[in-house]
Amino acid sequence: MRVTASNHPLGGPAESQPAGAPAPLDPVAAPAGAGAAAAALVSDLIQPAQQALAELPEIDQAKVAALREALARGEISFDAGRLAALIQRYHGGRG
């Protein structure tokens, strides 16, 4: 899965904050001074990682082929019921 702005906590839309809660740190919108220096540092650190992620293929076909072969040889097993339970548990609390 490729990480995009819509499914990554650093790139998605802002979540609503409870009343009285401090606003989340937004280094891009930081005021001039120390905040701006912090924003530049964060940007310098994140930019190479974002570029590397963008260059990755969405699906690693070699790994997919290796897993298919291992499944066919019986070296690994697949439990569809367990997968379904894990998916349901993960998404169960979301509406």
Rank of each mutant, 00 (worst) to 15 (best):
A84S: 14
P22H: 04
L56S: 09
H91T: 12
A21L: 01
F78Y: 15
E75L: 12
D60F: 03
I46S: 11
I87Q: 12
Q61R: 08
L71S: 11
Q88S: 10
L83P: 07
A36Y: 05
L45N: 04
G20W: 03
D26K: 00
L53M: 14
G20C: 05
G74N: 12
E55K: 03
A29G: 00
L86E: 14
A37V: 15
G33Q: 11
A23D: 09
L67K: 00
L25C: 10
A66W: 06
L53E: 14
L56Y: 04
L71C: 04
L71R: 12
E69W: 02
L71G: 04
Q88V: 12
A21M: 02
A80Y: 09
A37N: 06
E55S: 08
E58N: 04
L83N: 15
R82L: 13
Q88L: 11
A32D: 09
L67V: 03
A84C: 11
S77H: 07
V42Q: 08
A19V: 00
F78V: 06
A30C: 06
R68I: 05
P48W: 08
A29L: 02
R82D: 15
Q88H: 12
L45V: 12
G20H: 08
P57H: 08
G92K: 08
A54C: 02
A49S: 14
D60T: 00
G92S: 11
R68L: 10
Q61V: 02
G81P: 06
A37I: 08
A84D: 12
A34H: 11
L45C: 12
A38Q: 07
D60C: 01
A65H: 03
R82F: 09
Q47R: 13
I46A: 08
G35P: 05
R89E: 13
I46C: 12
A21Y: 10
E55T: 05
R89S: 11
P22W: 01
L83T: 13
